[in-house]
Structure formats: C-alpha cells, structure tokens
Amino acid sequence: MTTFAQAILSGTAQGAIYALLALGFVIIYKATHVISFAQPALMVIGGLFSYHFSAVFGLPFWPSLFIAILLGAGLGMLIERLALRPMIGKPVFTLAIITIGVDVVLRVLANRYIGADSRALRYPGGSERYEFLGLALSHRQVTIIVVTLITVVSLALFIRYAKAGLAMRATALDQETALAQGVKVGAMFALAWAIAGGLAAIAGTFIATGSGGIEQDTWIIALKALPAIIIGGLDSLQGAVIGGLAVGIIEQITAVYQAAYLPFLGTNFSLVAPYALMFVVLLIRPYGLFGTKEVERV
C-alpha cells in the first residue's frame, strides 16, 4: 500500500510537469485550433535559458526561472509572428506541420548548445526530503507541485476574470465575431503562444533540475503531454491538467508494478504506457474525457 501511495505521489510530481506542457498545447489549440508540435523545442530551450542564467551567469534559481519564462514567452510570440501569422486561414494541418518544421530547426540549435554532456540545473533545495507516514517526497517534487498549482490557478483566474482572458475566450469561440466586437485577434494568438512558451519554460526548467538534466533527447518528454491532452480532451483546460496528472501517475505505477506483474511487456514499458492509455481512452471516448464532441450537421 505504501508503495502504491508513493507511486501516486511521485507520479503527481512528474504529472505536474506534463500538466504544464499540456496546458500550453491546449491554450494554443483553443486560440488558433492548431496543435503546436514546437512545444518540445520550447520546453528544451526554456530549460536551457534557466540553465544558462544560473550556471553560466551565476544568477540564483528563482530569478533565472523568471527570466526564462519571459524569454520563453518571447520566443513563443516570435514563432507565432514569423511562421504562423502569414498562414492564418490555411488548413490547420498545414499550420501543424509548420510547427514541426519550427521544432526541428529550434531543436538543432538547442542541441548545438547542449553538445555531448547533459546540462543539469542545480536545484537550491538540494536533495532534502519531506517524510511522513513512510512516504517520501523530495523538496524539488513538492516545489514542482506547488508551482504548478499556483500557475494553473492564476491562469484559470486570468482566463476567467481578466479582460484579456475574456478576449481570449471570445477568440476561441469564434474568431470573426470576436474581431467584430473589437478584440485584437492577432494579439490573442500572440498572447496564447506567449503563455504556452512561458509554461514550456517552467516545465523545461524543472526537467533540467531532475536527475538527467537536459540532454539531446530530452525533448521526447514533452511529447508525453500529447497523450495527456488527448485523454483530457483537446479543448479543455481542466482536462489538460487532469490528463497530465493521469499520465504522470500511470507512468509511475507502470514503472513500479509492470516488471513484476506484466513482464512480457518488456523493460521500460512505463515510458510508452501513456500512449497505451491514450488508445484505451480513445476507443471509449473519441474526444477525450472532457473534450467537446464535434457535432456534424449535414
């Protein structure tokens, strides 16, 4: 039982990172109806920004994170302005493929910076652990959960109550009508990409503080947010958070139990378990747990 509870706790911490990434995907999707495959690159580069400011320039952890969020947001806006704005009105598939192109280019640049070693960020709390009832959670994991909680709540409040948040919701609902009401739709696209870039930078920074740091193939982690958004539903913010947590927890539980109970699935099955979960959810609910079902009228 303790093992199980521990798996859920550790999974929640990992899932919080996925939730941040998934939120980025969903916010871009809601604003522009495009799935941004550039998110992995934004995550890696955001993490590298933090790394550079704290390891090379010697800034403390939190200021580096803050600068990385701003730079990540800026990068997101830049991508939107240069690669996606010229394509407004084109099929969403085309736009999604363009983000793949952006991702490829940015990741080559990031890998050029990373080089052969891993770029690990030192977390200020060190390896201290909180222990209670036989469960242990590192200082870092607690911070991830808390930061994600704060981010998600403030984002929800922003979208619910701020004027720009209302404008974003209007844009997501209907771009032309929003335009007619005086909403600057282009600015909303930029805002969505900025938020997604910032969220990716937070996720990247916390991945950089993990055991492996940031390596050439760390970007794969960001793709695990894709099963998360499919499970939660592409256009649902709370779905993204729940999906992200579900993916993290499932991954952790598989890592703990699969070797003993389902050995035929092979080693490291936990890494692909989110995708397997995604298939199961899709077979039951094709639009995710919280997604809007598309209604087709002839």
């Binding site: 799935i35 969403v92 598939f93 092979g266 692909v272 639009y287």
Partner: peptide, 21 residues
C-alpha cells in the same frame, strides 16, 4: 472514429509503441 489532428497524435502514439516493440 477520429479526424484531423486527433488522428495525427494517435498515429504518433503508434510510432512510440512500435519503437518499444
């Protein structure tokens, strides 16, 4: 059962599961 980008993500999942196999 799926359309557009949902399908793209699912087929992406196929690649990761295939790689594992």
């Amino acid at each position: 059962r799926l359309r557009g980008l949902y399908l793209a993500i699912v087929t992406l999942g196929v690649v990761f599961l295939g790689l594992h196999i």
